[in-house]
Design a protein around this nucleic acid. Sequence first.
DNA 1: TAGATTGTTAATCGATTAACAATC
DNA 2: TAGATTGTTAATCGATTAACAATC
Lengths: 213, 213
Amino acid sequence: MRESKLEFMPTYERLPSYLHLAEESLVANMEFVSGTDIAETLGLSPIQVRKDLSFAGLKGIPKRGYKTTDVIFEIRKFLTWDEKKTAILIGAGNLGKAIVSHSEFKDCGLEIQAMFDNDKEKIGKKINGLEVLDVNDLESECKKINPVVAILTLSYKSDIQGLAEFLSELGIKGIWNFTKRKIVLEKNIAIYNADFLSGFSVLCADIKRRKNI
Amino acid sequence: MRESKLEFMPTYERLPSYLHLAEESLVANMEFVSGTDIAETLGLSPIQVRKDLSFAGLKGIPKRGYKTTDVIFEIRKFLTWDEKKTAILIGAGNLGKAIVSHSEFKDCGLEIQAMFDNDKEKIGKKINGLEVLDVNDLESECKKINPVVAILTLSYKSDIQGLAEFLSELGIKGIWNFTKRKIVLEKNIAIYNADFLSGFSVLCADIKRRKNI
DNA sequence: TAGATTGTTAATCGATTAACAATC
DNA sequence: TAGATTGTTAATCGATTAACAATC
């Protein structure tokens, strides 16, 4: 099976920032937000914002803009953030703790219901009200929880690829991979490799470029 | 001043994964790595890997591949990861802690020399051997340290944009922004917005797409 | 009404992929 | 030598931007 790529990735990456702005506009009691304003605030072109919003199914009103509540409702629906997605997290280190403790993910429908580690020191302890379970119980726990998403925050020295394959057998639909090792699967599973170093690489390149301008 | 964009961003994002593979090949005593193998392991096309490596200044040898030590040396140099970059981190929450404790960044030249917070509870405490300083002392501390990079891991409810402008006046060259609020600056500063929700948005879209295949 | 904003179609730009020559 | 791999030029594809019509 040839792996087909998700189209419009850049658009999906921008949508959360529009949602965030619309939420702030709602708090400020603004009934409408204009694409022009959004573009200005985010340093984007107005055409791009309009294209993105139209892609998410939004219709605006000339001269006024987009209805604030519509923007929030439609983007959330478009991204399936209005649906609950049960998740597990593997790797109860600092990053794992940070993610589990980050209350905002819940607004995106992400419900982390279990976290795992292989370190005897960590197993049994509670982090943000969630007990750290033994990674050896992954299979039995998953059969209870039936998670849709797995978040990987373990050391890259582990067998990440093998773990991913196991998770796919357990019925996971998407893997949010924060480790350094890229995951490649044949099966029909969504994988987002979120390694920090990719971003740092871009930052370094941009610093270098600007030095030479 | 019209903000010009960094070209070849996708290439820069991929380079760290090639570096990582080359480092593993070195440990495994492999003198050469082939672009074909790299591509296979990372789920990319061989042409793309060759193009990327050539962009980073690497020359391979037909039938053998690229010299492992060359790949490591050249990519690290190309990304300026062989140069020390002093950094500060603002926001000593869970994510801030995770980043400061992440030893790998040091291999990329990133030396976090101070971390700040505005929470009296946190100020004075040590995290991974680094004392949390009062964010009110940002200016005086920066004059001592002269940081190149600022890492922002504070709550998005703070005035991120204002902080970024202040940092730019203090001579910061690059901002690694983990907050939800996008930063837009006129000045000649590199900014990488690394908001987690952009990635989660893509993951959700991909899960949704595959459900309908 | 005039002006501001949306929406759509076409043009441009940049990144990826294909084709194939070069070579150890 | 034959086969595997690199390197380069051209073609394709997808995303962004431009131009402009539509409209409240």
